[in-house]
Design a protein around this nucleic acid. Sequence first.
DNA 1: CCTTTTAACGTAATCGTTTGCGTTTACACA
DNA 2: TGTGTAAACGCAAACGATTACGTTAAAAGG
Lengths: 338, 338
Amino acid sequence: MRKKVTIKDIAKELNTASSTVSRALNNLPGVGEARRLHILNTAKALGYEPNLLAQQLRKGHSNTIGLIVPQINRQFFANVIHSIEMVAKEKGFNVLISQSNESDVNERDSMKALIASNVAGIIMSVSAQARDLGPYLEVLEKQIPLVMFDRTLNNLDVHNVINDNELSAYNAVTHLIEQGYRHIVHFAGPQHLDIYSLRLKGYKRALRDHGLPFEPTRVLTQVNNREAGKEAARMLLENNIRFDAIHAASDYSALGAMLYLRKKGIQVPQQVGIVGCANEPFTELIGLSSIEQYSEEVGKAAARLLFEDIELQAERPVSKKISFTPTLIIRESSKKIN
Amino acid sequence: MRKKVTIKDIAKELNTASSTVSRALNNLPGVGEARRLHILNTAKALGYEPNLLAQQLRKGHSNTIGLIVPQINRQFFANVIHSIEMVAKEKGFNVLISQSNESDVNERDSMKALIASNVAGIIMSVSAQARDLGPYLEVLEKQIPLVMFDRTLNNLDVHNVINDNELSAYNAVTHLIEQGYRHIVHFAGPQHLDIYSLRLKGYKRALRDHGLPFEPTRVLTQVNNREAGKEAARMLLENNIRFDAIHAASDYSALGAMLYLRKKGIQVPQQVGIVGCANEPFTELIGLSSIEQYSEEVGKAAARLLFEDIELQAERPVSKKISFTPTLIIRESSKKIN
DNA sequence: CCTTTTAACGTAATCGTTTGCGTTTACACA
DNA sequence: TGTGTAAACGCAAACGATTACGTTAAAAGG
């Protein structure tokens, strides 16, 4: 390792003190203009680059923010990551990304690792398995700014940036009803996550508002991936449960069901209409109606909230909730009429 | 910020020196067994957690490795990221992920940021725009371990972990020929990237080995995304270039072409056979033949190479090349026979 | 010309660890 | 009892930067 140029090397070179060099480099008062220029020049000449670790040790935290998402390969998260990176870059911060893979253990490990790396703050979307509030409270206790987006916890008081899932579900189900579907099944996700409980709520409200009965047997829980969607569809058929539409809380479960139904010779959308959620890229390819969430805006908003807290570094302010309204994307899978 | 417990606090608590505490915590000799247990206990009792920044300042580098990929939302990269994370976790390292978004400027910035964060090493897959070797050489000069995977540079001497793109292209084209296609177009990517130049090479070799002529007009360059694939297909049709198959260096360009051809009423695979590359999840949904690359193995191998170098920290050893053989996944888009 | 102010600098402490080196202690052996 | 040796420990200097504080010298004011 070729020895790195330090502030002292510059000082020695110019027969001055390292404190003066530091002041010159940081544009702080207390250095003559002539000398400042001299220092800046030799710093450049020697190829000086500040040692961030040392700076951060002094400052008490790093120029890094942590980001934990359930899965990196979901389009929504990929977009959010990108927009958070943009904001962070503007602020001169790095982003440390971790995937929890929906496991609370992984999530906890990631949080520990981030804290240990002295991140300035954490943005996260909690894993499906998350139950114990302990780890999150720990972060708050350490006064580390924390922002949650999309997957938030309904009993934790932190900044939240979400999509209006109740409304988007309401709109999706209303759309199905308007298309003439009457027996609508809901594929739900883990109910302790706002994201899923609100979708169920929106589903119920839409039924009620349109004078349709709510049948508990039509709500299938823990159906939020492709395999589960397929299984759910199989179960519906085998048990002869009457249904003519599926409102899925996930594009993947919608996909699983759609392929299974088609394989069984059931026509989509003529016999069964389907709407998913998240507008994953593949939905366009297979004509699956879905819900576009404003990933870029969510990411930006989350990052801005975090940096507000980081820059404020006061006592934890009152938690803000920011909500975006998603739009329904109607494709063939739910077009019975026309 | 509630004051963090430091090694000194523990020392004060037990009326000992911080050096002793350090040795106890690190299981170094020079501490009596009784005292060691005592120290460990009070450390736990006080809730001590080491300040990584301080440790890293001392050690000269961090417990973080940098990872730069063109795009995070490609399945192949997502998988590689995951497997690298696994290996890193085992070693007690964090992974700092950046996306270059195919821009050499972004890539350069990311590398600078990683270096400034004192990462222990960098694993990367270079951006499509990459041309200037400067930034990479800089990393090598600073003696920072560097490993490239998948997208490698053909004139840079570093560790490489790749898929055998020449062979996979050869197999894909051979498959098309065996299916009876005779006028095969190749959608190529930027030729300064091994990954693409080798695919072209494999394409040529397959043609030659099967006695088919190589027509330069059948090679379209810079066709490695959906839009370009669509444009390329349009161009082929509008210029009446004779072709009955497409060997695309990217699933996305294959997708663009496939959808465009179908829209124009051309039947796939009856009139035109198509094979893509990378086996993105969507290929299964639309029946696109593709090439499965061993992402998990690539990631693991890259990470292992990097850690070898990090742990060795000797002079840069001779560069290793590790190559995996991808498998062809045959789907409807290329099945003319049977 | 002397006093006061202010800018320009240097000294040294600090952040939390690790580690070389010197000192103490305990214990074995003669 | 005296000597030797090794283990156990403390002191203090690092790592590279920031910063409170003290010093000096020049400029300003009378």
